[in-house]
Simulated assay, not measured.
Amino acid sequence: MTSPSRDQPPRLTEDARDTAVRRVQEAYAGGHISHDKMDEHLHQVLAATRHSELDPVLASLPEDEAAKAEGPAGAEGKVDTASTIAAVSGRIKRGGAWRVPRFLRVESAFGRVHLDLSRALLDQPVVDIELRLGTGRAKITVPRGATVELEGLRTVWKDTHYKSPRRPVPGGPTIRILGTMGYGRLRVRHARR
């Protein structure tokens, strides 16, 4: 039995990849990089197999605010700005008066997703919802006055169904939907009230 070479750097972990994806998204959300640059960086991060391949991407981003807040004392003072809802199969459903984080990641391999933000508590003027969906449908209901941005979403099989309101209501939150959908369809609609 041969042992792996000690000279070879360790493979990239999913936690490190997720952290890099979050940093790229935060840089975009903070206006530090353009949408095209975010796409380029995300492609590099998702294709990386070694930590050294992330270095050029991470070096071009502003310092990680969560790491600065954490400081040398550990997790004290750390602000939770992201949340993940995940299921392999079955249904993911959120509705009512639930608190929506600044960054929300939704992961599902085979199930259906229904997020109703019409009565949700949105503490931030901009919310990023990252979809990582394999198959199955997704439906997102946004508040009546919300602005919806879909430029960061990649679909493999079906197009996204979204019709912007004829008379936009000023002052609402911005909901940016990004990520990847495999073989399902995303429907986004505005709440009626």
Rank of each mutant, 00 (worst) to 15 (best):
L115A: 05
A109M: 12
D123I: 03
S108Q: 06
L117A: 06
G96Q: 10
E107S: 10
D123K: 09
Q124S: 15
F103Y: 15
R112E: 08
L121T: 14
L121A: 11
V100P: 01
L122A: 04
G96V: 02
R105T: 15
P101E: 06
G95A: 13
V113M: 11
G96S: 08
G95Y: 13
F103A: 02
I92Q: 12
S118P: 11
D116A: 09
L115Q: 09
S108Y: 03
G90S: 12
R102T: 12
A109E: 12
G96F: 11
F110M: 11
D116P: 08
R119Q: 15
V106Y: 01
V127C: 12
F110E: 12
R94G: 00
R91G: 05
V126D: 09
G111H: 10
A120I: 03
V100A: 15
L115D: 03
R91T: 14
A109C: 03
R119N: 15
H114S: 10
L115P: 06
P125F: 08
I92V: 12
R102S: 11
L122T: 02
H114Y: 10
P101I: 04
R102I: 03
L121H: 07
A97M: 08
L104G: 03
L104H: 01
S108H: 03
G96P: 04
L104N: 04
R105N: 09
R105D: 11
D123S: 14
D123R: 04
Q124I: 00
V100S: 11
V127F: 04
I92N: 05
F103L: 06
P125K: 10
W98N: 01
L104C: 02
L115M: 09
